[in-house]
Simulated assay, not measured.
Amino acid sequence: MINLNGNLVEADSVLTHNRAFLYGDAVFETLKLVNGKVLFMEDHYFRLMASMRIIRMQIPMNFTLEYLEEQIIQLAELNSCSASCRVRLTVYRNDGGYYLPLTRSVSFLISVKPLGNQVYAFASEPYEVDLFKDFYVTKQLLSTIKSTNRLINTVGSIFAEENGYQNCLLLNEEKNVVEALNGNLFMLIGNRLTTPPLSEGCLNGVMRKQILTIAKKIAEIEVIEEPISPFDLQKADELFITNVISGIQPITQYRKKEFESVLAKVLLEKLNEAVNLL
């Protein structure tokens, strides 16, 4: 028996033994499926494999790209959302042990949620951000993967809501800007498009990779990966956030500075062109 909210109930293994719940011993991928096809599946797959190796999970022999993609597509079909849906694939270490697991073997859980948009749409509504300075992202390899320990993102999202912001920007221990709460950050000053390198502790984002690839093909744009300070934000012509669900989210205001979204529109059009070719 266990005590759940003051009631004695039978022990629930999902709550009492699952290591993702107990210790955050899990990694996950958020994917987008459109017209029965998982976008950027190969990039998601290799990031997932790298994340599992980093935290010393045992990768099952059947964990091939084709197998996981098939599982996702079948689930979307069963839930009648093959046209467009958000997919979450969570891999967690199996039950046993305390901090030291008794096994390195894993299980996985897939869930889907319908989305209204098939292509990436341009977001024109006001989108204000500020810095979240209560906690900092650590410059380490664990910060670059998607583990289920996302407390800084959760608390930062509450802070943003309490203060009327649409998002917040996270800092590392050197007080450089790392990323947004839900995606990677890009900054345009003149013709220089900058995003923090992975060594700053930012997420190794799948959409970050796509935008870097697309932007490097635009002759007039110089693409750079280097640290961004809070002072740089005030000099920017454009700021935008990238993630695989929304594509590109332009930031319209940071403190008293307002921003354009010219390059963001161009990149979004090229992103949709690339998606159509997948």
Rank of each mutant, 00 (worst) to 15 (best):
S51E: 09
P196S: 10
L15C: 03
S107Q: 00
I214V: 08
P230H: 09
E10P: 01
L267K: 01
L39W: 12
E69A: 09
I158Q: 05
Y92E: 03
Y127V: 14
T103V: 09
E70H: 09
N35D: 13
V177T: 10
I221M: 08
L188M: 04
P126W: 13
D25P: 00
I54W: 15
L233D: 09
S147Q: 06
R88P: 00
N7Q: 12
V27P: 02
Y120S: 01
K235Q: 15
V244F: 02
E200M: 12
L33E: 00
Y127R: 08
D95V: 04
D95K: 08
E220N: 11
L267Q: 01
S124V: 03
N167G: 14
I59R: 11
C202H: 05
E174K: 15
M1W: 04
R19M: 08
V275R: 15
E125V: 04
Q249Y: 04
F231H: 14
T30Q: 06
I228H: 11
E260W: 02
A160R: 06
L142Q: 15
N62T: 10
T194C: 06
N184R: 13
G24T: 05
N18C: 04
L75D: 01
G183D: 06
L75M: 03
E269H: 12
R19Y: 01
R150L: 04
V244L: 01
L22Y: 02
L212T: 08
I248Y: 03
R53V: 04
A180D: 12
L142C: 11
M61H: 09
L68I: 15
F132A: 02
T148D: 03
V38E: 10
N182K: 10
L68E: 13
S199D: 09
I248N: 05
N153C: 03
L131P: 12
K175G: 05
N79R: 09
D232K: 10
F186C: 15
N153A: 06
T213Y: 13
L39Y: 10
L170W: 12
E225T: 10
I59W: 07
G190M: 08
L239D: 07
T103M: 01
T195V: 07
E179I: 02
G201F: 06
L78K: 14
T16C: 05
L102Q: 02
E77S: 08
Y165F: 13
F122W: 05
S147M: 08
G183P: 10
N35M: 02
N5Q: 12
F231W: 14
R56W: 04
I241N: 13
C81T: 07
I59P: 00
Y92Q: 01
K235Y: 13
C202V: 09
Y23M: 07
L233T: 05
T195P: 09
V9N: 01
A264G: 03
S157K: 08
E125R: 05
V137D: 00
E200C: 08
M207V: 05
V112Y: 04
I152H: 11
N153L: 06
P196I: 07
R86A: 00
I245W: 03
Y254Q: 08
N79H: 09
